[in-house]
């Protein structure tokens, strides 16, 4: 059984824009899967369709064998989403954000309390547990969003550009954490613009462009497919900007 199986997914907005043009994608259970593509390629739309934030025009989405579009109850229980933009509830504190999220996913009070304590500790948020989310720094919001996505112990974790705009130490801290939970069995779907992040973390990568999956494989497979030597060069070839390759950038004198 696949953790995520998307078949011929089409998403057409009322404006007529076709953001996804028959995307098919399969992610094995336990995989750390990267989805790369330029802005507007359809990454976020694909994630939104998977998590119920957008309604597909046609096609099917299954999460661990459960229909994620029409009978979505079990499918959504299995997914945790850390969105690109912080979407925290301003009226809640850090601890309440975790508690309410757990409640939305039907977790009993005792379990919510224990899980929240565990995550607050894991993400170094314990000291600030009573602070309202609107007053948190960008880094703290990122930590909380990831903790919230993990609150209900999802089997599939979707990270939509989780390290955009965060400092180096937090980025590395998040890498360590997501790698650990992946090793513990959580399947991860990651979108990122940091190619070294995808290279470091992902066991398999898909390139998406213009609403279509154009290539899939390991980092090395993709480099081979585009007849270049690195994932970054493969990506530049995908977006038609091969001239920007680091191979053409002179190294600064020390």
């Amino acid at each position: 059984m696949y953790a995520l199986a998307i078949n011929e997914l089409v998403k057409r907005y009322p404006t007529g824009t076709e953001a996804l043009k028959g995307v098919s994608l399969e992610i094995e259970e336990g995989e750390f899967y990267g989805l790369l593509g330029p802005n507007g390629a359809g990454k976020s739309t694909l994630i939104h369709c998977t998590t119920g934030l957008a309604q597909p025009t046609s096609g099917s989405i299954e999460i661990f064998g459960h229909d994620a579009v029409h009978h979505y109850g079990d499918a959504r229980l299995a997914v945790g989403l850390a969105p690109q933009e912080p979407n925290l509830d301003w009226f809640l504190t850090i601890e309440e954000s975790l508690d309410f999220h757990g409640g939305y996913f039907g977790m009993p009070r005792k379990d919510r309390k224990e899980r929240a304590t565990e995550l607050l500790d894991a993400f170094s948020l314990t000291d600030k547990r009573h602070e309202k989310t609107r007053f948190l720094s960008g880094g703290m919001k990122r930590r909380l969003i990831l903790a919230r996505a993990l609150m209900h112990r999802p089997k599939l974790l979707i990270l939509d550009e989780p390290t955009a705009g965060v400092d180096v130490e937090l980025r590395l801290e998040l890498w360590h954490y997501v790698q650990r939970i992946n090793q513990e069995g959580t399947t991860i779907l990651l979108t990122t613009h940091y190619l070294e992040e995808a290279e470091q973390l992902c066991t398999k990568i898909a390139f998406i462009n213009g609403g279509e999956i154009v290539a899939t494989g390991t980092s090395a497979d993709l480099a081979r497919e585009y007849n270049v030597t690195s994932l970054e060069d493969a990506y530049l070839a995908l977006v038609g900007r091969g001239e920007l390759s680091r191979a053409h950038v002179p190294v600064a004198d020390a």
Partner: peptide
């Protein structure tokens, strides 16, 4: 409207509710 504006409603919309 506040929840739509902050997009915090997405946490509920992506739940099994």
């Amino acid at each position: 409207l506040q929840q739509k504006f902050q997009r915090s409603i997405d946490d509920q919309l992506s739940s099994p509710a």
